[in-house]
Each structure stands twice: as C-alpha cells, then as structure tokens.
C-alpha cells in the first residue's frame, strides 16, 4: 500500500514550444537554470555544514591527531586498524545493533498498527493524532530524566512495581539485555508517535514507507543521547556502564576524541567506519524496498494510469 519508492518517473517536458524572441530566450534560460537554482540551497548548505566536516574528518582519521595539540604525522590506515583491534569497539557495535533492533523493529510495527487504527474514520480525529505525537515534543533530556527515575535499580518505579507482583528487581544498569531494553524503551517512547504520523501520511498521500525505515535506521545507529543520559554515574566521556553494557558506537567515538585520551584520529576513524556501515545498510534498504516496489503489480498499474 505504501511502497512506491522509486525515483520519480521522468517528468514531461513542460517547456512551452514554438515561440522565439528575447523574452523567449530569457524564458528558456529560466527553464534551464531554475531546477538547479531550486535545489541549490540544499547543496550549498550541505557543502558548508556536511561535506566539509566529512572531508575534514577523513583527513583527521589518517593522521595521529590529538584534540588539544592538533595534527601529528600521517599514519595511513593505522587508526582504523587500531580501532578494529579494540574489543571495546566491537562491544559498542554489538550494543548499537542490539539497541537498534530492540527499538526500531517494535517501533515500526507498533507505528503501523496505530497508524492503521488512526486511518479509520474516527471521531475527534485531530485529538487522537495530536495525542500520539505528545512524546515527540518532550525533549530527550526530559525523557531521560523521567526514564532515569523509572528505571533506577533500587528506588525506581519499575522495580517497585515488579516487586509488588513478586518479581525480583531487575538490574537495569548492570544486565546487558535489561539496559538495552530500558534504553530502547526511551527511544520507542519518543519516536513511535512520530513514525506513526509519518506512516499515516504515507497511507494517505506520501507513498513512502522507506522514509520511516531509512530515517529510523540512521537515527537508531547514531544513538547517543539516551544511553549517555541513562548512565547517571559517569560523565559523557566515560558513560556506558561499568562493563560497557550499553556503550554505543557514537558514544565510543565521543569518548575517544573528547575523553582523557583526546585521540581525535581514532575518533574520526570510528566516525568513518560508522558512516560506511550506515551507508551500506541504507543502500541495501533502498535497493530492497525498490525491488519490492517494482515487483508489485498493483503499483505498476497505478503508475500506468497516472503517466
């Protein structure tokens, strides 16, 4: 239902024909240049705020580079090799994927269900839709504070409830899976409503589920705020649990670069590794969803009608 994901079909030529003259030449120029002009704000801004940082980081990752004392000698791929040999990197990658799986998958399923319900001919439609979006407006800082209280190991509400029904308290900050669940909970709380509305829009007008999948994939793999704030004992430069139970890749790269090691070179290498992982997953996603879309006969028919 919501899977037209190919690039837009080649549009028709909208140029008016068979007229000549000064005005027409201007008009032709208008037609040629305008498309580029319209997309230029994005690309100009990206060049400044996206591309430059990306290339800068690439250069840093190939050098021994201390955050405070600056550029050192060129070391080639040594930073990448070092990082790949650190067990902590793999732990961080494991945690990232685990939290990602525990958040994204249930999130999209729940969002689909709620969106289907909201898509019905409801009374007080606006009220329900806005209600679903409430968690999105609560700042991550606030969400972390609320869930920090709920998931405190000794004085938290969750364990208090569990013990009332006779279940022994869970070590939300010590058990790997429990900590991932608690963090996934924070993520799901904030983003399910948002994704519900995006999917709802997809059902009604914007034919694209891949949106939800790509953006939540990227957001999920870059997760930083929630696990960092979940660790109340340690500062951002050392957070992630006493045994690295819930260190994620972005936390790890922050700690390498801004912690006491100030190893910006390795930090940049981790950033690039993560970038490549995300890019690979997104492209697979994109290709996969495209395949589904082009295999779907219904969609093809819909296309034919339109064009």
């Amino acid at each position: 239902m919501v899977t037209i994901t190919e690039l837009p079909t080649r549009p028709r030529d909208v140029r008016p024909r068979r007229r000549i003259g000064m005005r027409q030449r201007l008009g032709r120029w208008d037609v040629k240049v305008s498309p580029y002009l319209y997309i230029s704000p994005f690309f100009v801004l990206f060049a400044i705020t996206g591309l430059f940082p990306l290339l800068y980081t690439a250069v840093v990752s190939l050098h021994k580079w201390n955050l405070l004392t600056g550029e050192g000698p060129f070391v080639g791929l040594k930073n990448y090799v070092d990082v790949l040999h650190q067990p902590f990197f793999w732990k961080a990658l494991r945690n990232t994927f685990s939290i990602f799986a525990l958040s994204t998958i249930p999130q999209i399923i729940i969002a689909l269900v709620i969106a289907a319900v909201l898509n019905a001919n409801l009374r007080a439609r606006t009220f329900w839709r806005m209600g679903v979006l409430v968690p999105y407006v609560v700042a991550p800082v606030a969400v972390a504070m609320i869930f920090g209280q709920i998931f405190s190991d000794q004085s938290g509400m969750m364990n208090a409830i569990l013990s009332k029904v006779g279940i022994s308290p869970v070590g939300w900050h010590s058990n790997v899976l429990a900590s991932h669940l608690a963090i996934a909970n924070m993520v799901n709380y904030r983003w399910t409503g948002y994704n519900t509305l995006v999917i709802l829009a997809a059902m009604q007008a914007i034919p694209n589920l891949i949106f939800v999948i790509i953006t939540s994939t990227i957001g999920g793999l870059q997760i930083f705020d929630e696990p960092t704030m979940f660790d109340q004992q340690n500062s951002a430069t050392t957070a992630g649990g006493a045994d690295g139970q819930f260190v994620t890749v972005t936390m790890y790269l922050y700690q390498l670069g801004w912690g006491s090691q100030n190893n910006l070179g390795r930090s940049a290498a981790v950033a690039w590794l993560l970038f490549l992982v995300i890019l690979a997953i997104s492209l697979v996603n994109y290709w996969f969803t495209n395949r589904i879309a082009s295999d779907s006969g219904a969609v093809r028919r819909a296309r034919k009608v339109r064009s």
């Binding site: 996206g50 800068y56 870059q222 972005t250 970038f275 995300i278």
Partner: peptide, 14 residues
Amino acid sequence: IATTAIPTQLGVVP
C-alpha cells in the same frame, strides 16, 4: 538521501 547517513557527532570540530 545518502547525506543523511553522516553521524552528527562527527562534525562538531569542523
């Protein structure tokens, strides 16, 4: 679409 894959923490210094 590909640009969305860039981790934001990556860009702080530049």
